[in-house]
């Protein structure tokens, strides 16, 4: 579904991603770990098409198609979804109106009829119940004044509504209490399917206890320095990233 080949990218002229290779097939869940500042959010932003980054080398293929020149909304239409590490607050635009606009934009793209306000509300209520989100959050401005946990639930709600093909979750677990973590993980797991792929960025094993990955990758200074199965995450949890740097097999990037 997603194939990244030798990806180099700069942000504001500074090289951040320095040759990333990553292949994610439909049905797979990949976890991406790595120290602060290693480039995890940069990678997710580059995949989602955020302006301000420049790809200096390499390719990004999504479902066989080079997406480097696609606008963010076109990538969303293709089925790429990024749950933001820091969801943006947008005063004056209600969450309800935003989600309806987003869903209908995608439906139009898929050749489906737009949902009217009633149908949308019904669908939305069902999804909100799945992430335990209070209904009044729909009538408030997007993320404005939302607690950290509410913002993250809102991201998952959007994911449930938009039903993307590739879900990129950038530290969706950070700032969540234990119950919220479970709720969010259940939301994510409910989307797992043979047609869908996930890239889960996290610092903690505890999320991966709920969302069990097929593969784990470690990103350090813009490169994937280690890939493995779910055990790799557990090992990292015990030994820390320095273990990779020091360890004899640490230098061996895939």
């Amino acid at each position: 579904m997603l194939e990244i080949r030798n990806l180099h990218a700069t942000a504001g002229g500074t090289p951040i991603l320095k040759g990333i290779d990553l292949k994610i097939e439909a049905g797979e869940v990949h976890a991406l770990m790595g120290p602060n500042g290693s480039g995890k959010s940069t990678l997710s932003n580059v995949l989602a098409g955020k302006p301000g980054y420049e790809i200096t080398e390499g390719e990004v293929l999504f479902r066989g198609r080079d997406i480097r020149d696609l606008a963010p909304e076109e990538r969303a239409a293709q089925g790429i979804f990024l749950a933001f590490q820091y969801p943006v607050e947008i005063p004056g635009v209600t969450n309800n109106y935003f989600l309806k606009s987003a869903l209908n934009a995608l439906r139009v793209h898929r050749g489906e009829p737009e949902l009217d306000a009633m149908d949308f509300l019904a669908l939305c209520k069902e999804k909100m119940a799945r992430v335990d989100m209070p209904e009044d959050l729909m009538n408030r401005s997007i993320n404005e004044g939302f607690s950290g946990g509410e913002k993250k639930r809102n991201e998952i709600l959007q994911m449930l509504l938009l039903e993307p093909r590739l879900c990129i979750l950038d530290e969706t677990d950070s700032g969540l209490d234990i119950d919220a973590l479970r709720v969010v993980a259940e939301g994510v797991n409910s989307l797992r399917s043979p047609e869908r792929a996930m890239l889960v960025i996290t610092h903690y094993q505890r999320l991966l206890d709920h969302i069990v990955p097929d593969f784990v990758h470690v990103l350090t200074e813009g490169r994937i320095v280690r890939s493995g199965g779910k055990d790799l995450a557990q090992e990292l949890e015990k030994k820390g990233y320095t273990w990779l740097e020091r360890g004899p097999e640490g230098a061996a990037a895939p």
Binding site: A48, F84, I90, F98, Q158
Partner: peptide
């Protein structure tokens, strides 16, 4: 904010309009 809206599939012009109304 513009990127956030666009990343959800809302076209750039529509996203600008939403923010302006907002």
């Amino acid at each position: 904010a513009l990127f956030y809206l666009r990343s959800r599939g809302i076209a750039e012009l529509a996203a600008r309009d939403l923010l302006t109304q907002g």
